[in-house]
């Protein structure tokens, strides 16, 4: 199966390990991966801040970059959701709306793709450790991917899972919210970190780079001994 990887700007620049793990997991499952070089950022940071005009150029770029793709897979729920949003943003645009619809139809978040398209529940991963999992808001509420990550994690050998208290609560990232509303964001991420500590997990796993950068950044600032991993890295461990 031919799969085009949408690695996200965070994944390209700051978390290349997530992209590498995604490639390796998908290849092991028989996918043939390509990486369209002209991909940029999905436009969400500007779009969510109200800069619709500025963000549309990036969106058009992305639609062109993935025009040829059969499947587009993204290791970040929020960015995958953004690809699904394009069709609403370009509504009634005779040129771009059809392209946006086409992109939405073939775009999947990584775990969703593995479970729903590849029909695989067990990727054969082994991971020793106590973990908890943060369900990202955009991935669960807006993209509607709720069960796939848990399906895959529950089949990872050696992994011991504890549910995160208040798991549906936002971590306080919210893109530019994290800097525009710093003091509020700080309170939100502190409560999240406190909940992670309550689980006594050694690892916090998530499927969204933004949330992980926020929670992980706070955990590191506070010097807590909790490691933060993207679900692709867990699924790629043997």
């Amino acid at each position: 199966m031919k799969v085009s990887l949408f690695v996200t700007c965070l994944g390209d620049l700051f978390q290349s390990d997530v992209g590498k793990a995604t490639v390796e997991v998908l290849e092991r499952l028989g996918c043939d991966i390509d990486f369209p070089e002209s991909q940029v950022c999905c436009g969400q940071p500007a779009y969510n801040s109200g800069y619709v005009k500025e963000s549309k150029e990036a969106m058009k770029r992305m639609m062109k970059a993935f025009d040829h793709s059969e499947y587009v897979v993204c290791p970040s729920g929020s960015c995958a959701y953004m690809f699904h949003e394009y069709q609403h943003i370009f509504k009634s645009d005779p040129v771009w709306e059809p392209k946006a619809k086409k992109l939405a139809e073939k775009t999947y978040e990584l775990t969703e793709f593995i479970v729903d398209v590849l029909k695989v529940d067990d990727v054969g991963a082994k991971f020793e450790g106590n973990v908890t999992y943060h369900t990202s808001c955009h991935m669960t509420r807006l993209l509607g991917v709720k069960s796939a990550p848990m399906t895959l994690l529950s089949n990872v050998e050696g992994l011991k899972y504890t549910e995160l208290p208040g798991k549906e609560q936002c971590c306080g990232f919210g893109g530019t919210f994290s800097v525009k509303m710093g003091p509020i964001s700080e309170q939100m991420v502190d409560e999240k970190v406190q909940h992670v500590e309550e689980t006594e997990a050694e690892y916090l796993i998530g499927a969204d780079s933004g949330c992980l950068m926020n929670i992980g950044g706070r955990i590191n600032r506070k010097g807590k001994p909790i490691k933060v991993l993207h679900i692709a890295e867990v699924l790629n461990s043997r």
């Binding site: 390209d12 700051f14 978390q15 706070r218």
Partner: peptide, 19 residues
Amino acid sequence: AWTDIREFPAPNKERFRDW
């Protein structure tokens, strides 16, 4: 505004696309 509250990850030495 970010680093007032949290650590910011250093950019990877090798970008994903280069890898």
